Simulated assay, not measured.
Amino acid sequence: MKDKKILIAGIILIIVIAVGTALYFFIAKDEAMLNHDLSKKENTEEQNLMQANQEALAKAQESGSTLRPADETDHIWGDLNAPVKMVVYSDFECPFCYDFHSTTQEIKDEFGDRVAVIFRHYFLSSHSNALLAAQASECAGEQDKFWPMYDKLFEDGRAGNLNMEEFKQDAEDLGLNQAKFNKCLDEEKYRDKILAQKQEGKEAGVIGTPTIFVGNEIYPGAYPFTDFTDSRGREVEGMRSVIERQLGIVD
């Protein structure tokens, strides 16, 4: 009887292990397929954005539209007289922009004062909090804290925390004059400036974010810092190679 019970217990254990193993591989396969589908969707969206941007740029060039030169009205990270100027049209609620935010830091770490980063607003209408976030950055800029707020807003965006309460908390964390910041934000003081920058971007050929201009070249999409192979198997310059070429640096 004892041997029979041991045998039954052994059979049950084998069945449990078999079912568990099958379930594990089923879930793993399902998750892998889901991740593949999401990755494929993201690649397709970025390809569509890049193609649409290039088409918009071609139309803008045909009509004689050009990118407005950087000046003191822009937010500039670095020296306006730097040999390379990189104008970035971006949106604080754009996932691709979160990626390029990291690339921008790599660029500054590598090239320092040889590259000036110029940030311009291009909020997407599909992003419900992007315009408000842009206004928060400008209100912080009024107190010489644009770039620290810029970093915080991208952190907020990654965490899904783009909202009025969070912006005011960011202002407090940065040591801003809270009353002045709140008044600026509540009155939408910089709304017109942000709308004007978006219109300038459209006229220069921008239709999505991020869109990066380096010299007279346009790079639509979240280009990484290093060279990469695109979805069609083509070798593509990353931002480091683009900037090195602009600076005349050769291997």
Rank of each mutant, 00 (worst) to 15 (best):
I118Y: 08
K4A: 15
L174K: 06
A171I: 04
E110C: 12
L7R: 11
A9C: 13
E46K: 10
D99I: 06
F225N: 05
A116M: 10
I11E: 12
H101S: 02
P148E: 08
A82E: 07
Y24F: 15
L38S: 02
N163K: 11
G233S: 11
S126P: 03
T209W: 02
D71Q: 03
N177M: 03
V214M: 11
F92N: 01
E235D: 12
S231D: 05
L38V: 05
E237H: 06
I118T: 12
K2P: 04
L38P: 02
A171N: 06
G20S: 15
A222L: 04
A196I: 09
A130V: 04
E72S: 11
A116T: 12
N129I: 00
Q178W: 00
P224R: 04
Q54T: 12
G221L: 05
L49K: 13
L185P: 03
I6A: 15
K193Q: 14
M50G: 07
F100M: 00
T209H: 03
G205R: 01
N53Q: 13
G248K: 12
F167M: 05
G248S: 14
P148I: 04
Q135Y: 02
D99F: 08
C184H: 09
T211A: 07
E55D: 06
A60V: 09
L13W: 01
G78T: 08
E244D: 15
I11P: 07
Y24S: 11
D144P: 08
G208W: 05
T226F: 14
A196Q: 14
I11D: 09
L13Q: 04
I243N: 10
L38N: 08
Y98P: 01
T211Y: 06
D151T: 01
R240F: 03
G20Q: 12
I11M: 11
V19H: 07
A18G: 13
E200Y: 06
E138H: 02
K193D: 13
A28P: 07
D170S: 12
N48I: 02
F111D: 11
E187I: 00
P148M: 07
R245C: 07
M164I: 00
V206G: 03
F123V: 04
K198H: 13
Q61R: 15
A159M: 03
E138A: 02
C184I: 09
A222S: 10
Y219T: 03
T21M: 13
S90K: 04
E138C: 00
D170R: 11
D79R: 14
V242H: 00
G233H: 10
P148N: 04
K41P: 06
G160K: 12
R240T: 04
G248I: 14
D3M: 14
G248A: 13
F25R: 08
F181N: 08
R114K: 14
D91G: 07
V16W: 07
S125K: 08
D186M: 14
E42Q: 12
I118K: 09
G157E: 05
I17W: 10
L162G: 06
F25C: 03
I107N: 11
N216P: 01
M33C: 01
L23M: 15
A18P: 04
R68S: 07
T229F: 03
